[in-house]
Simulated assay, not measured.
Amino acid sequence: MSEPVLSIRNLSISFRTGNGMVNAIRGVDLDLHRGETVAIVGESGSGKSVTVKAIMRILSGNQTINSGTIAFRYEREGRQVTEDLLKLSKKDMRSRINGKRIAMVFQDPMTSLNPTMTVGNQIMEGMMIHLKKSRAEAYKRALELLQLVGITDPEKRMKSYPHQLSGGMRQRVVIAIMLACDPEVLICDEPTTALDVTIQAKILELIKDIQKKTGISVIYITHDLGVVAKVADYVAVMYAGKIVERGSVNDIFYDPRHPYTWGLLSSMPDIETESEKLFSIPGSPPNLLHQVEGDAFAPRNVYALNIDFKQEPPMFRVSDTHYAATWLLHENAPAVQMPQTLRDRLDKVMKEVGDPWKTDALSCR
Rank of each mutant, 00 (worst) to 15 (best):
R9C: 02
L11F: 08
S14T: 07
T17C: 02
T17L: 00
V22G: 12
A24C: 13
G27V: 05
V28I: 12
L32A: 04
V38D: 01
E43I: 02
S46M: 05
T51P: 00
A54I: 01
M56R: 07
R57M: 02
G61I: 01
G61V: 03
Q63V: 07
T64D: 02
N66R: 14
E75F: 05
Q80F: 00
V81W: 04
T82H: 09
T82C: 07
E83Q: 14
L86V: 04
K87Y: 03
S89E: 01
D92Y: 05
M93S: 06
R94N: 08
I97T: 04
G99V: 00
K100P: 02
K100G: 02
M104K: 10
S112G: 13
P115Q: 04
P115S: 10
T116F: 02
V119S: 13
V119L: 08
M127F: 11
I129G: 08
H130I: 05
K133P: 04
R141N: 02
L143V: 07
L143S: 06
L143F: 01
E144M: 06
Q147P: 00
I151T: 03
I151S: 06
T152V: 06
D153S: 12
E155P: 03
S160E: 00
H163S: 11
R170Y: 05
R172T: 03
I177L: 12
L179N: 09
E184L: 11
E184V: 09
C188M: 14
D189N: 10
E190W: 07
P191S: 11
P191E: 06
L195E: 02
D196R: 14
I199S: 10
K202G: 14
L204E: 06
E205K: 14
E205A: 15
G215K: 14
V218F: 08
I219D: 01
I219R: 03
G226F: 11
V227N: 10
K230L: 08
A232D: 03
Y239M: 03
G241C: 15
S248D: 00
S248I: 00
F253Q: 12
P256I: 10
T261Y: 13
G263L: 07
I271Q: 09
E272F: 13
L278E: 10
P282L: 03
P286G: 12
L289W: 09
E293V: 11
G294C: 11
A298I: 08
V302E: 10
D308G: 15
D308I: 10
W327T: 13
L329W: 04
H330E: 05
P339N: 13
Q340N: 09
R343S: 15
R343Y: 15
D344N: 14
L346T: 07
K348Q: 09
M350W: 01
K351G: 12
V353E: 07
T359E: 13
A361N: 12
S363Q: 14
S363K: 15
C364K: 13
R365F: 04
